[in-house]
Design a protein around this nucleic acid. Structure first.
Length: 420
RNA sequence: GGAGAGAUGGCUGAGCGGUCGAAAGCGGCGGUCUUGAAAACCGUUAAGGGGGCAACUCCUUCCAGGGUUCGAAUCCCUGUCUCUCCGCCA
């Protein structure tokens, strides 16, 4: 959620910033709501003040055994008015809140302008594109030829966009997640968490998945719970309603979880293979930081994700997302894209975002600085990295026609073998 | 699933329908003392919002939502969560 002060003082400028994120603000409507809110609130508070004052006097009179009837009459009138005004205020206040909660975060000034992913800027390339996989077989062919990739079975017991992995492939998948966790914990200073993969709707609202993107979520309406689309949701909400001490920051958390997405808007995209699934595993990093350190933390987080790809010996590039491709809560985002020989292109495998105080305001995550002031924290999240896609990239880049070559960093996690 | 108890500030915890935004302790901050620190002592310290250039001032908040009342942390109802006991169970 954006700071409402942005709309009170610089609504034109704010509207322009929102437009870059693809949100069209109706300035007149907003101003009108704001004005109504203001006058109703003033009226309500004036009535409350006189009610409080008179009620106090009633107490005094009664204690002195004096007559309070004239006060009581006046109070009846005030009560009636107050009830009226309060109803009106509540409804306009709700309307304003609803409006604000559906607005995206604004982008950093230095984020490149653009419409969609084609306007993203490549900022870095790493690794040589010279895969062992000379025929550019895709992961489905490789997995099936090994007899370890069971898509029909998955469809039988679930639906399309689910997968069953068997034996060595399941082992690689598990090993990848464990390797990533160990690197983040041992080398990058994160604390590992195990978190609920169903969360309440308040938590989903807190990180920005609701109310606007309910179509993308699996929601269990009978239980008021949702399957998490990313561990960012439970991890970030860990600090909701908290006032942290300055020296507790930064908080660096990491978790391996399954992620569930309905992929409502992506019919027909990536239907082959396990690029885009309803259920996939991800190792997620979340940082809660002092606002002064937001950008440094973002750069650091990107390097943490990069280290995973380096450890796996995978060619990748880093792109900065343009304004039109930034997520709802993001202020600035870098994606890591890994080379997929079968598609002859780089595909997203990690996304690291600085969300400034956008989520913090929703979840009331604050910290007290040395001077004793209470302020909102900044939140960041990044994949470190998507496990399924890492496995795909590993298969496609390190398959020599017969075996999958295991990078040395991963070997301890898959039984020590250098080929599988 | 059944029975009972509870939810109060950063934390622990007291609280009679009005003098309660709320005792006390811890913690934080400032000071005295000290070469420095600790201890001791003194002071101070909730959050959110409205109005005002400002000094300041007003409103809201004691789990959430309703209700009773001139007035609710306190009384009533509903919900959520926590704890204890019983049942079931990976």
């Amino acid at each position: 959620m954006l700071d409402i002060q942005l709309f009170r003082h610089n609504i034109e400028e704010t509207a322009a910033l929102l437009l870059k994120k693809g949100y069209q603000l109706d300035i007149d409507k907003f101003n009108q709501i704001e004005q109504t809110r203001k006058s109703l609130q003033n009226e309500q508070q004036a009535l409350q003040a006189s009610r409080n004052k008179l009620s106090k006097e009633v107490g005094d009179l009664k204690r002195n055994k004096q007559d309070a009837n004239s006060h009581l009459e006046e109070l009846n009138i005030i009560s009636e008015n107050l009830k009226n005004v309060t109803d009106q205020f509540n409804s306009i206040y709700e309307e304003q809140k609803q409006l604000l909660s559906e607005m995206p975060n604004i982008a950093s000034k230095d984020v490149p302008n653009g419409k969609d992913e084609h306007d993203n800027i490549e900022v870095k390339k790493h690794g040589e594109i010279n895969p062992l996989n000379k025929e550019s077989l895709d992961h489905v062919k490789i997995g099936e030829s090994l007899g370890l990739y069971l898509s029909e079975e998955a469809t039988k017991i679930a639906q399309s966009r689910f997968i069953v992995l068997k034996d060595k492939l399941a082992r690689i998948h598990r090993g990848l997640a464990q390797m990533m966790l160990d690197i983040h914990v041992n080398e990058h200073g994160y604390t590992e968490y195990y978190v609920p993969q169903l969360v309440n709707l308040k938590a989903m609202y807190g990180t920005g998945q609701l109310p606007k993107f309910s179509d993308d979520q699996f929601i269990l309406n009978d239980d008021n719970l949702a399957l998490i689309p990313t561990a960012e949701v439970p991890l970030t909400n860990l600090v909701s309603d908290k006032i942290l001490k300055a020296d507790e920051l930064p908080l660096k958390m990491v978790s391996h979880s399954a992620c569930f997405r309905r992929e409502a808007g992506s019919y027909g995209r990536d239907t082959r293979g396990m690029i885009r699934q309803h259920q996939f595993d991800k190792v997620e990093m979340v940082q809660i930081v002092d606002p002064l350190n937001g950008l440094d933390a973002l750069n650091e987080m990107v390097s943490h994700a990069e280290n995973i790809l380096k450890a796996l010996d995978l060619p990748y590039r880093v792109v900065e997302l343009c304004t039109g491709d930034l997520g709802f809560s993001a202020f600035k985002t870098y994606d890591l894209e890994v080379w997929l020989p079968s598609q002859k292109t780089y595909r997203e495998i990690s996304s690291c975002s600085l969300c400034t105080d956008f989520q913090a305001r929703r979840i009331k995550a604050r910290y007290k600085n040395k001077a004793g002031d209470t302020n909102l924290v900044y939140t960041l999240n990044g994949s470190g990295v998507a496990v399924g896609r890492a496995m795909i990239a590993l298969l496609e880049n390190h398959y020599d026609g017969k075996h999958i070559h295991i990078p040395s960093a991963l070997r301890p996690y898959v039984g020590g073998k250098d080929v599988i």
